[in-house]
Design a protein around this nucleic acid. Sequence first.
DNA 1: CTGAAAGCGCTTACAG
DNA 2: CTGAAAGCGCTTACAG
Lengths: 328, 328
Amino acid sequence: MRPTIKDVAREAKVSISTVSYAINNSDRISEKTRNHVLEVAKKLNYSANSNAKRLRQKNVGAIGIFFNSWFGPIYSELVQGIERKVHEMGYDLIACSLFGGAESTAHRYLKDHMIDGAIILSNAFDDDFLKSVASKDLPIVALDREVKAEHIYNILIDNFGGAFGATKQLISSGCKQVHYFCGPDDSYDNQKRLEGYIAALGFYNVKFDNNLIIKSDFTEEDAYLKMKEIIDQGDAPKAIFSANDEMALGIIRAANENGIKIPEQLKLIGFDNIRESERTTPALSTVTHHKYEMGVKAVEVLFSAMNSEEEIEQVTILPTQIVERETV
Amino acid sequence: MRPTIKDVAREAKVSISTVSYAINNSDRISEKTRNHVLEVAKKLNYSANSNAKRLRQKNVGAIGIFFNSWFGPIYSELVQGIERKVHEMGYDLIACSLFGGAESTAHRYLKDHMIDGAIILSNAFDDDFLKSVASKDLPIVALDREVKAEHIYNILIDNFGGAFGATKQLISSGCKQVHYFCGPDDSYDNQKRLEGYIAALGFYNVKFDNNLIIKSDFTEEDAYLKMKEIIDQGDAPKAIFSANDEMALGIIRAANENGIKIPEQLKLIGFDNIRESERTTPALSTVTHHKYEMGVKAVEVLFSAMNSEEEIEQVTILPTQIVERETV
DNA sequence: CTGAAAGCGCTTACAG
DNA sequence: CTGAAAGCGCTTACAG
């Protein structure tokens, strides 16, 4: 059986209060006593029962992170930022399984308040659910998603601005026709990027042409297929703004296979600056955002919400920048 | 403030025992009372404080999963198997951050017994640490790694057999020289696969030639570079057994770029059967194992260890098979 | 069928 | 500087 505080007290011949003070580094006991207790605790391999501790202290000491899949390459740096910052704040970070729908660990941990705060990168929770669990005691930070409610904070990147800038650059480099490779309709990112694209057309008085909007789904494979299709139809695009980099990868592959020279015959800008984007031939120009910093920011907002009494921003928008490589 | 069982009791005008019975579906109270209590609980948005519950019940109800990175493509199906099975057993599944070394959430959760069992796909814990935390109350299942100790169970794939079979096939198809693309020295998988390779050579009385062992590191990029180097030196390999698929991807890329025809001029077999392996041109022949089933098995072993009194197998070895595609 | 009470393992005012 | 005791929110024998 696991030793309890009682066992340590008995073995060290002190009261359980003293053990508690020793373990928690209180300065109310003498150095000598503390060392003695700590020694005994170590000998018994004692560690405090967290359930008892948390019950007493009314805090959990953990932040939950929720993503659709535990394995999406995009998030890697973002999560690193989150991990480091949460650790720095002295909290634990746990990710909960979403398997099982409304009965999933993720749902239970949110409902049962098994965490002190949540960071969400997932659309597996609907807005109503999030609203029902968010509170001052369990604030939620949602990334790349707009959820307007008390105790829910949104951190977004400037999708609109990034798309606007990318499209603008394509147009101002002389392209009168800019194709837009589109992500899924229900993607928040895609919507905003499309808006930015349209706004840039408007800015330059270029007429919006629905035929230039290529419906795809954010995957390399589908974009590759769509691009090949277009090329086969005989009128290859001169300029493309791709709503994400993965699709841009597929576009490059199709272009290369068909002898279309980039950037001479086709200019291309992606979005996200994923790792692979600098390794393509030619290297992909793209819109970047600081993922690591986004993670850090998310944690900062979360802890302000947990601790501070003052109003904090409900929505934070992080800037984007164009990184010019060889496709434009 | 969150409502407690007291609040529900007061509001429902019953004792807290009755509330507890109602919430936990005990048949000791009348249907009528239960419904009434449940209604009040719902109205107050009550959910039991898990810390109190767990303290009382002396169980946690959660399994921990630990992987080096939350984002390694190999694990996806494996984790799906684990998620489904853990959920089926009525337990929660949480992944703990490894950031912070010995002070990480992962280490703390293991030490402090915040979980009832652990599944480990990581080399971030050394054997001694695992041995010190494993117990009947917190058994550990280690995947793809041999840790021999009480309460630690190993689930392995038949690396040796798979490598033996792959090499054997290459030799028996007429290749007298088979190169081995090597993973990192400290990789358990790599060691076993190398042993299988060597054994197959022995089986066919082919002399081991150290020049055919190409030191690489499991990555596409490095294998690509190494392969190019070899080709540039003028004596392109006729047959390669690659210790994993990612390296095989790099090998194919280098071969394709240098006009080496696969499988006519070069036969190649990889290991792991990652998703990309069927999409390469030509499609990669490889050694496969059932990742989803491995996840399920891991959970089964873990729960046996947690619940059953009888001896259970310390080591489980899962079979591998060769999937023939176009590179051989 | 229902309730009063003990106790899980801690922390922390309070007393000395 | 140390200890006795209350209490966190539950569950569960026990009594009625």
